[in-house]
Simulated scan of single mutants.
Amino acid sequence: MIEKLLLPKEVYQLVRLSEATVWRMRRKKKFPDPISISDGRVAYRESEVVAWIARQPRSFV
């Protein structure tokens, strides 16, 4: 099965967090890292983002 990839903009909308907040959380290892899909382009594995959402307290997301 092919993993669905989400572009950063899609992730920010899905998790309702700004780009800066996601960046800070990634730096602290509290959010999944993206993967490189080409020179200068990244995407997130949908399964990792969904799993991250599921681990959050209801009041957070």
Rank of each mutant, 00 (worst) to 15 (best):
M1W: 03
M1L: 09
M1F: 02
I2V: 10
I2Y: 10
E3N: 11
E3F: 05
E3L: 13
E3Q: 13
K4M: 07
K4P: 02
K4Y: 08
L5K: 07
L5G: 06
L6I: 05
L6R: 02
L6E: 06
L6M: 15
L7F: 03
L7K: 07
L7I: 01
P8F: 00
P8C: 04
E10H: 04
Y12L: 07
Y12T: 10
Y12V: 02
Q13I: 07
Q13R: 14
L14Y: 08
L14H: 06
V15G: 02
R16N: 14
R16G: 11
L17P: 00
L17W: 08
L17A: 09
S18F: 02
S18H: 07
E19R: 15
E19N: 15
A20T: 13
A20L: 07
A20V: 11
A20M: 11
T21G: 06
T21S: 12
V22H: 03
V22S: 03
V22Y: 04
W23F: 15
W23A: 08
W23G: 02
W23K: 10
R24G: 00
R24L: 09
R24K: 14
R24N: 10
M25P: 00
M25G: 00
M25W: 15
M25V: 03
R27S: 11
R27P: 00
K28I: 08
K29N: 13
K29H: 14
K29A: 11
K29G: 05
K29D: 12
K30G: 00
K30W: 07
K30Y: 10
F31L: 02
F31C: 02
P32R: 05
P32S: 10
P32E: 05
D33G: 03
D33L: 14
P34Q: 09
P34G: 06
P34D: 00
P34N: 05
P34T: 01
I35H: 04
I35M: 11
I35L: 14
I35T: 06
S36E: 12
I37W: 06
I37G: 03
I37L: 09
S38Y: 06
S38C: 05
S38D: 07
S38E: 06
D39C: 03
G40A: 10
G40V: 04
R41I: 04
R41M: 13
V42Q: 08
V42M: 08
V42C: 08
A43T: 03
A43G: 02
Y44D: 11
Y44P: 03
Y44A: 11
Y44S: 06
R45D: 00
R45V: 00
R45N: 00
R45P: 00
E46W: 04
S47R: 13
E48Q: 15
E48G: 05
E48V: 03
V49G: 04
V49T: 08
V49L: 09
V49R: 04
A51I: 07
W52F: 07
W52N: 00
W52V: 01
A54S: 13
A54I: 11
A54K: 15
A54W: 01
A54H: 11
A54L: 12
A54F: 01
A54D: 13
R55K: 15
Q56Y: 11
Q56T: 11
Q56R: 13
Q56F: 08
Q56W: 08
P57H: 08
P57W: 05
R58P: 09
R58I: 14
S59R: 09
S59Y: 14
F60Y: 15
F60C: 10
F60Q: 12
F60P: 06
V61C: 15
V61S: 11
